[in-house]
Simulated assay, not measured.
Amino acid sequence: MTKTTSPVTGSGSGTETGPSLLYLLKRTELVVRARLEELLKPAGVTALQYTALTVLERHDGVSAAQLARDSFVTAQTMADMVRALESRGLVRRDVHPRNRREKVIRLAEAGRRLLADYAEPARELEERMVRDIGPADVERFREALKSAHRALS
């Protein structure tokens, strides 16, 4: 008989160990995204658009392909997203400084204002997520997530 690992229990041994880390991570990601969608609804932006704006806040002036990679979406999805964000004046496309045939995506002033308006509510959402975890454990959690990402990248 072949042992298989259940995505829900994380165990193939027949002993109950609880949900797998993959399942827990996905479940958490989905609820975070849903709460972020609720939070951002008044601004008329999606959680994915907000993510792209936060990427630009940290790394302004990137290609659409790089923005897509850093925002965890496909190039086609990012192309549609950039058009929508640009039509709202949240981002702009400029000629690349070293390659005039290429465009870079930049955060517009309206995008900066939106991020400033939602910085505190987003911080509160994150705090809510970890409110039952002590500060030292939150930092270990952050480092563990970074380590897990590095291991799979």
Rank of each mutant, 00 (worst) to 15 (best):
K3W: 13
K3T: 15
S6N: 14
S6D: 15
P7Q: 13
V8Y: 14
G10I: 05
S13Y: 07
S13K: 08
G14W: 05
G14M: 03
E16R: 12
E16A: 14
E16L: 14
T17G: 10
T17C: 06
S20H: 03
L22S: 11
Y23S: 08
L24H: 08
L25V: 11
L25N: 14
E29Y: 09
L30A: 15
L30Q: 11
V31L: 13
E38A: 13
L40W: 01
A43N: 07
G44E: 08
G44D: 06
T46D: 05
T46S: 15
A47I: 03
Q49N: 01
A52R: 02
A52I: 01
A52H: 04
L53K: 00
E57C: 04
H59I: 04
D60L: 06
A65P: 03
F72C: 10
A75L: 12
A75P: 06
Q76T: 11
A79T: 12
R83K: 15
A84V: 08
L85W: 04
S87R: 12
R88H: 08
R88D: 08
G89Q: 00
L90I: 09
L90N: 00
V91L: 02
R92F: 05
R93E: 10
R93C: 01
V95P: 05
R106L: 06
E109D: 15
A110E: 05
R112Q: 02
L114V: 01
A116I: 06
Y118A: 02
E120D: 10
A122M: 13
L125M: 04
E127T: 08
E127H: 12
R128S: 12
R128A: 14
V130L: 15
R131K: 14
G134C: 02
G134R: 09
A136G: 04
E139T: 11
R140P: 06
F141Y: 14
E143M: 13
L145Y: 09
K146H: 10
R150H: 12
A151S: 14
